[in-house]
Structure formats: structure tokens, C-alpha cells
Design a protein around this nucleic acid. Structure first.
Lengths: 170, 170
DNA sequence: GCTCAAATGTTCCAGATGCAACTATCGGGT
DNA sequence: ACCCGATAGTTGCATCTGGAACATTTGAGC
């Protein structure tokens, strides 16, 4: 966790440079991609620690479980599409989940290259425990925002993602 | 880049599960920390590729240069506070920048443990080139948002960060 | 001025990440 | 039926990342 003990110092520091710097100097703290990254990492780390401590899964593994628990049966390729993760990350997450008996992998009759992945009974049980935890964390995280701000945030993130995907930023 | 060729399929997939899934099922695509992470990673990767291609620096190195160029002279400890990066990341970034002649490190007279880091002439020159690029990318990224949405986003990210920092999410 | 806990920076190691190359399979064109 | 380019999955490798242990220096208390 690279925030925490240093945060007060950082705030003080940011405050000082806000006051004393010439207006035309670009400050990292004003750079929106930077803020997005810092906030996102803080949120992700916080949640990842919780998943790890309680269920022994990392974020890619949890994402795969969340999608499988929601949809049912998917191939790795479909999981890649559903989670926006790298196919290697999906492959590794699936391998771990299969080894732990949380996911079952059976041949795909209509395509010999792929397999069908599905939660086992034990996987569904963990899914039933981990989803309320995730929802609870989301709720407590979003407590600080009004309903309008929550809607705004979702809309804005969608717009930004589409912009990065479609537009030549460079 | 783990989005791109799979994106259309992902959209289609998300669309299908939106339509056909029971309402009470929690979907990963609705989970805000997930969306935040996907968007942030997409933005960061896109920008990182640009820095790498044009200046041969990675994100930690760029952050250190941005702060040094803005503030002047700092110790590694102050850089940690200013960038929210890990002290190891700051140390490595500084080492690389010193080796490349972009940053000068001189003893700190008032504290024998630390050194003062400062951009060299060549470092200031790169800073002068890289900051407009960063600002331009930010501008083109934010083109998709209204002025009100941009203000909202900054406010919301601040609130979220404070929430993660101060509140017990688990 | 001595001692010791705290702070700074550095190195080491272990895990996460993702690209690229590879194998196996598919399916369209001939 | 046979190519052959495209696709699904896997493995290897090189890089990124951060926690933990370490050396050095500081500064407060005695």
C-alpha cells in the first residue's frame, strides 16, 4: 500500500505547491489521468487485500468467478471479452480456480480448441459469499457520493473509455 | 493492450447478458470498482505507450520528472509524498533518470541520509517537450466531456480517494 | 555525549503482468 | 479431401511491482 502513512505529508506538500507555484506551471496533481490512476489503484488495492484475506483469490480470479457465477458457462475466449482481461490472465486465473476445485472445465463439443468453464458446487458457494462482500464494499465506497454523482461517474467513465478506445490521443 | 480486437465482442456479450440475465444477479460490468479499473488501465496504458515511444521513459520516471520540473529540488522522500508512488519505485526512477543525465543528485547538507534531486539542463529540456505532450493528451481525452463533467469527475475522484483512505470499506 | 527508536534510501526477492511465439484446431476456398 | 489463414489456448520470457530486510543517519530523551 503506497498511500497511507505518507498521505498527510502529501496533502501538505500538494497544498504548498498549489499556493506557491506560478499559475502556468503544469502540476502532476492536476493531471487527470494521474488522478484517475491513483484513485483506481487505491480502490483496487483495498479491495484486492480483502479478497485475498478472506477467500485467497486475486482480482483476475475473482473477476472470472463473478462472470461465471453470473452467466453460467463460458469459454476462455468469452471470459476475455466479458472481463477485458488479457487472455493470459484469464488462462492463469482459470487454471488456479480449476486446481482449487472452484471451477470445472469440460470439453466443448462444438469446438475442439476450447473448453467450457463452469462453477462447481464449491465455486457457487464461494461466489454466494464473495458477491455480497463485493457489493457491500462498493456500497460503502459509494456512500460518499450522491445518487447523481454515482450516475455521473458511470456515464463519465463510459465516455472516457470509449474516447480512449476510438480516438487518437497522441 | 488487452482491449481492442475483443472490444466489439465484449460489447455484444455485455449486451446479451444485460438482456437475458435475471435482475437480481450482480454483474461485473455494473461493479463500479471494476469500471474504474478498466477505464484507468486503458487510459494509463495508452499514455504510457506514448511516453515510451517518444521519450523512452515509463510512467514512474515521467511522474518524477513532472514533479521535479514543476517544483525544482526535492528528496526522494518528498517525491514519494508528491507522487503517491512506492519509495522503491521512486528510487528506481531516480536512478534511471540520473544515469540518463536527466536528473542531478547532490548531497543534502541538512540531512546526510538523503540527497537533493533536480532536473539537469537536458532534463529540463525533455520536461519542456513532454509536458505539452501530456497536456495535449489530457485535452484530447477530456474532449468527450463537458466542462461540468470534468469538474464533476475531479470532485468525485477526490471524494472516492478520501473515502478509500479514511473509511473501513471491508 | 550516549542510546535507541524512527526515518531515509537501497537491495533483494517473490509475485503479477503482458507480449510474442508456439501448438492444436477450425472452417472457408478450391 | 486438402490447404491455409484465422482462432483458442498455452508456455516462455522479460518487465513491472511492492513488501521486507538491511545499512546509514538523525534527533529526542536521559
Amino acid at each position: 500500500m503506497h498511500f497511507g502513512c505518507y498521505f498527510l505529508l502529501a496533502l501538505d506538500f500538494a497544498f504548498r505547491i498549489t499556493l506557491h507555484m506560478p499559475r502556468d506551471n503544469a502540476r502532476l496533481a492536476d493531471f487527470l489521468p494521474y488522478r484517475l490512476s491513483v484513485t483506481s489503484n487505491a480502490v483496487s488495492n483495498r479491495i484486492a487485500v480483502e479478497y485475498r484475506a478472506r477467500f485467497g483469490v486475486n482480482v483476475p480470479e475473482w473477476r472470472v468467478m463473478a462472470v461465471l457465477g453470473d452467466v453460467g458457462s463460458l469459454t476462455q475466449r468469452q471470459l476475455v471479452g466479458a472481463t477485458f482481461m488479457d487472455k493470459v490472465a484469464v488462462n492463469r486465473a482459470c487454471k488456479v480456480l480449476v486446481d482449487r476445485g472452484l471451477v470445472e472445465r469440460r470439453p466443448n463439443d462444438s469446438d475442439g480448441r476450447s473448453h467450457i468453464l463452469e462453477l462447481t458446487a464449491s465455486g457457487r458457494e464461494m461466489h454466494g459469499q464473495i458477491m455480497p462482500l463485493a457489493m457491500g464494499m462498493e456500497e460503502r465506497l459509494l456512500e460518499c457520493l450522491t445518487a447523481a454523482e454515482q450516475r455521473n461517474l458511470r456515464k463519465i467513465l463510459d465516455k472516457l473509455f470509449a474516447q480512449v478506445r476510438d480516438t487518437d490521443i497522441s
